[in-house]
Design a protein around this nucleic acid. Structure first.
Lengths: 162, 162
DNA sequence: GAAAGATTGTTGTTGACGACAACAATTGTC
DNA sequence: GACAATTGTTGTCGTCAACAACAATCTTTC
């Protein structure tokens, strides 16, 4: 219907590959899809996050888990998993790793002997403080990339997904 | 510095897990991170895309490859991979699958015997037309989810990442 | 024009991640 | 007390990004 129909670059009948000047390849219908842009952006963000927090070896998912536990000590694994949209099966491994690194501890609950109460260790709290500083630095990179008000617009638009 | 510091819900000293009323768990610093919202949103989008194009069994990455080839017949695998930000190693498997389904064909290039010129089959072209209709339907779901102007704002903000 | 270097497609490995299924221990319900 | 539901755990499967290595084939350089 719209201009998305596009025109094939060059009906190269039977495979005549002309060098194709670098980056002028049409995306056609893709430019109208929010998902495509969001995906590429998300990849960029994660790469920058991983690089910026590289010195402390913390990935986005780990950071989100630590942050939530830090702000809500005593949560069960189910509660954390549900809140962050992580499979509880996956959270098990994440916590195994974080517990090995002495950042988190699983305390056996006495009110419900099935569940664990999650807490940061003392070491975990000071570490998280540093992670947050680095994460803030990462966030500044995002600002530089898309612009200050665009970042805030974005946060407002996607507020329901947090 | 800001209000992001948050206050721990309840110093539950030694693991007293109080039921925690459903979804009122604080995200603390996470709410200020664009990456978190973008990630959750991207997961939602992909799930809807996969569900909406479920009847034709086409996933987002496959759709992007088909679209680019359709709009630029004769491209090499390198060109497609670079344009879409896909590893060329990964594109190999994607094309294997699409070629098995008779949607795409690899034509040996005569100007550069290392590379393949990628084309849609006739079947591939009619199939892609249907995929595009379904993808447009998916896009309407996005509109319903975040609102019409928010979607357009989003596309504008992230235009550089396409 | 031959040697050295770069590119293209391919194969394989690794690790993070989402989605499921199954299970034991425990709790809640009737 | 029997039966269903929940919690943490283990395991499998498929997608995906990131590398590394390789053979075949250009391209550069002397």
């Amino acid at each position: 219907m719209t201009a998305a129909q596009s025109s094939p670059r060059k009906r190269a009948g039977n495979g005549a590959v002309r060098p194709i000047d670098a980056e002028e390849i049409g995306l056609d219908a893709l430019v109208g899809h929010a998902g495509y842009a969001v995906r590429r952006f998300q990849i960029w963000i994660f790469q920058d996050f991983i690089r910026t927090l590289g010195e402390v070896d913390i990935r986005p998912t780990q950071y989100s888990v630590l942050t939530v536990i830090g702000a809500n000590p005593g949560l069960s694994q189910m509660a954390v998993a549900k809140r962050l949209g992580i499979e509880r099966a996956r959270l098990v491994h994440l916590l195994d790793s974080l517990e090995q690194r002495k950042l988190v501890k699983r305390v056996k609950s006495k009110t419900d002997r099935r569940s664990h109460a999650l807490h940061l260790t003392t070491q975990g709290e000071t570490a998280l403080a540093k992670f947050k500083r680095l994460a803030a630095e990462h966030e500044r990179h995002v600002e530089e990339k898309i612009g200050r008000d665009n970042r805030e617009r974005l946060l407002r638009i996607l507020a329901d997904f947090t």
